[in-house]
Design a protein around this nucleic acid. Structure first.
Lengths: 342, 342
DNA sequence: GTGAAAGCGCTAACAG
DNA sequence: CTGTTAGCGCTTTCAC
């Protein structure tokens, strides 16, 4: 073999020279494109190896208009950086996205959109062509992010239905149905003094769960359910449970709008000498890791986050390949995972 | 205002024409670079606004050799995608990295290196210039990733000291000291029948914690500590605790090499009717979210992951700005967080 | 099938 | 201070 080249940077040109062909031919071989003569191809391959050639992504992108990168934008309420990443949700979404993307030789670039400035940055990131499109994990109701992307005509797909009616693709869960599952389970156990720990009021998903739960309980002859609000953290769940305990001393069933709050509720219940599920049955939502870590283990409503994230990614890639496509949506069905807490 | 341009893509050229200046001048204004005449600058700014100009990242990168992106490579044992992202560690590292990067207008691209193929992809990603450098979260001992990057001369910094002696920068924690902190605390409580739930044997950090614990206990006159191994998951911790309970029935103190395993141990302990901390004191490691969620709350050894991740990122950026720099390392000090479990 | 040549959009000397 | 002129490395018609 010839000694490895010491040049600052090996280009297509160098390979061409080495293989005694034109740049165009090397390009064709590199991209496995057209029909290139076997012999030439062999020579090119050898030249690539001997020169240690590595294609330059920027040059490619400049002409192809493709980066192989998508922005994964975590939209959080202002200044919630730490909390966003601490939530098990983040890991699950990321896992789903990465897993889907890697098989297509693509990668997500992480972005936090928790201020006007950050939102503009995220948008500009893809407008400048740093990414081909965006995956928006949008949460709260007033989030201007979706509209921002739609207005700019930037390809994007949402995780969670937009609160405001924005013409954009999204994946979501049937939150109402999930909450109804919890209500049914509680009712079947014979719970009558039922309460719920709801999520933040500015979060559409949280409201759907609350509404779904109330409606379903009403169908079971329980027209009133006490509600306390939390913010999806364990501590807030504990706090809410304490409130509930005072408001409804004879409480025998609780539905928490996510697992983390259910974990907090579990703590409060234990501290107050209530045995779960004997004294009070408790159901969470999400079926995330924490649900499996408690004692008793949490009965919960499963949300297939990884699968949803993968689907969202697939939708974005389709959108990228077929620009004109109209927005579409996919709503996943939740199901109840019966464990020990209810 | 003139009507917004409908052109397919607005370039510097268009802005120049609109402002009646040269491309160079526009470029200068855009980059806030040199001293440009106030009047011209104003005209340019106006033209940028009226044309809706957005700089093209690829073109820029092609000449600058900078992308503003760094690869965040999570190295996992083969085929552990899901587990990597489920670990609270992942979120904490990501949080630290994103937080540090965003102020510098940079972003991390996520990558999972859990196979030879994936490792090469990660390396090529930055070699092709998709990213300026790499942050390697390398775990297990045999990991070829660090060496791979060093051999290729690609700028990279590790999270966790490399098992094999590789000339590369890294941040790490003084695991031995952390374990010793746990040992001292247990000894001070008067624990004598002590055991530890160690991490995977192929993980340097886990071994250091084990060694540090054993050594410190020996200093306290406890020459032998029973050890059971887990794999850093809660389930494995529970399993290990069960083993320990049979091996050392009179056990009164346990040190788990991470919080997740401690959570599992807590479950086993409860199931066996042992009261924590009265019957047996339990200490975890990491001070991650789960440590705060249990009842009793976990006494644990704090590892400042976010801070370490930020520092690692800072080191990479320095390396990028000053290519010739010799590898450096920063070792953080752990401290004990006393809560209720010990 | 293969090569020549024309850009992709931008920055950075280098003159003026 | 500003404009002119080369490229950065690659893909892609378009002739041969």
């Amino acid at each position: 073999m010839t000694p490895a080249a010491t040049r600052r940077t090996v280009t297509l040109e160098d390979v061409a020279k080495e293989a005694r062909v034109s740049r165009a031919t090397v390009s064709r071989v590199v991209n496995g494109n057209e029909k290139v003569d076997q012999d030439l191809a062999r020579r090119v391959v050898k030249a690539i190896a001997s020169t240690g050639y590595i294609p330059n992504a920027a040059a490619r992108t400049l002409v192809n208009r493709r980066t192989g990168t998508v922005a994964l934008v975590m939209s959080g309420s202002d200044g919630s950086a730490a909390q966003v990443f601490a939530d098990p949700f983040f890991g699950r979404i990321t896992g789903g996205v990465v897993t889907y993307l890697r098989d297509r030789a693509m990668h997500p670039t992480l972005m936090l959109a928790d201020s006007d400035r950050a939102r503009r940055d995220a948008l500009d990131f893809v407008r400048r062509g740093n990414a081909d499109g965006a995956l928006l994990v949008s949460t709260h109701a007033g989030d201007p992010l979706p509209q921002l992307f739609v207005d700019a005509g930037v390809p994007a797909v949402l995780f969670a239905r937009p609160a405001l009616p924005v013409p954009i693709s999204f994946v979501d869960l049937d939150h109402e149905a999930g909450a109804a599952l919890a209500a049914n389970h509680l009712a079947e156990r014979g719970c009558r003094q039922v309460a719920t720990i709801a999520g933040p009021a500015d979060l559409p998903a949280a409201n759907s769960r609350l509404a779904g739960f109330q409606r379903a309980m009403a169908r079971h002859g329980v027209p009133f359910v006490q509600v306390a609000h939390g913010n999806f953290t364990a501590d807030s769940g504990e706090q809410a449970m304490i409130e509930l305990l005072t408001a409804v001393p004879e409480i025998d069933g609780v539905f928490a709008a996510n697992d983390l709050m259910a974990v907090g509720a579990l703590r409060a219940l234990r501290d107050h000498g209530r045995v779960v599920p004997d004294d009070v049955a408790l159901i969470g939502f999400d079926d995330s890791e924490p649900a499996r870590l408690t004692r008793p283990r949490l009965t919960t409503i499963s949300q297939p986050v990884e699968e949803m994230a993968a689907r969202m990614t697939a939708m974005l890639l389709t959108l990228l390949d077929t620009p004109g496509t109209a927005p579409s949506s996919v709503v996943f069905d939740p199901y109840l995972v019966a464990r020990e807490s209810a």
